[in-house]
């Protein structure tokens, strides 16, 4: 099989459309995962068992089942329960929800990394719970978590092809469609590989850079 530049060139505009969908889905999915993950973490640490335990079960349930299965359920079952979201919205929520369970773990380790003395000091000052979180714990817990969060954003980016099963025309769907139409998969599939690489590498570099700036060197006590 030989590489056909003419065909590769011809498919590029459609593949770039697909890339737009992929990037948008990743950005929106990451935003959901970052916010929802933090909410999960705080709820899991709630002093009320009625909140902590159900949250824990929900997180473990989502984390332990495949994204593909979750997408299928959201796409085909939710509408039958009267909840109708577009395919794209369904995909974004699926990605965000799935990755929120991972980011929740990241936040948890960040919070556990905050010295116990900080909690005690906040308590000694009689700060309300909301201020303990917003002013004392999270400002110390979140920055060290950012590199790991960035890695999950990259992982999510590479998992967006799963949205093809729920009819979202992201990169892989477009490439498969072009291949089936023209009986040639080599060019579109190679191009999407290059496009994924072209976006993943700078993002990984950015994450590493942030890691160096945000994680403070250990200070002498």
């Amino acid at each position: 099989m030989t590489w056909d530049w003419g065909y590769a060139w011809e498919t590029l505009p459609q593949l770039l459309d697909g890339l737009g969908v992929t990037v948008l889905a990743t950005l929106a999915g990451t935003a959901i995962a970052l916010v929802l993950g933090l909410i999960f973490t705080v709820l899991r640490r709630s002093s009320s068992r009625w909140i902590a335990i159900p949250t824990e079960i929900l997180v473990e349930f989502i984390r332990s089942t495949p994204l593909l299965v979750q997408l299928f359920v959201l796409f085909f079952v939710l509408p039958q329960a009267g909840i109708e979201l577009s395919a794209f919205m369904t995909g974004v929520i699926g990605l965000g929800l799935h990755y929120a369970t991972y980011t929740s773990e990241v936040y948890r380790s960040g919070i556990e990394g905050v010295p116990a003395g900080q909690w005690e000091a906040a308590k000694a000052l009689n700060l309300p719970a909301r201020r303990v979180w917003t002013s004392v714990i999270l400002p110390q817990a979140v920055p060290p978590s950012i590199p790991a969060l960035g890695n999950y954003a990259i992982a999510m980016f590479k998992e967006t092809p799963q949205l093809t099963v729920i009819t979202v025309m992201e990169l892989l769907s477009v490439a498969r469609q072009l291949g089936a139409e023209n009986y040639r998969y080599l060019e579109p599939v190679t191009i999407i590989g290059v496009l994924f690489l072209a976006l993943s590498l700078p993002t990984a570099w950015l994450v590493r850079r942030m890691e160096r700036r945000l994680v403070p060197a250990p200070r002498p006590v």
Binding site: F75, F76, V77, P79, Q80, A87, T164, T167, S173, R176
Partner: peptide, 16 residues
């Protein structure tokens, strides 16, 4: 765009 005949069938059922 559905990836199989049966996901198309389910898609109509789910009002996709």
């Amino acid at each position: 765009i559905f990836d199989s005949v049966f996901s198309g069938l389910d898609g109509i059922l789910a009002n996709r």
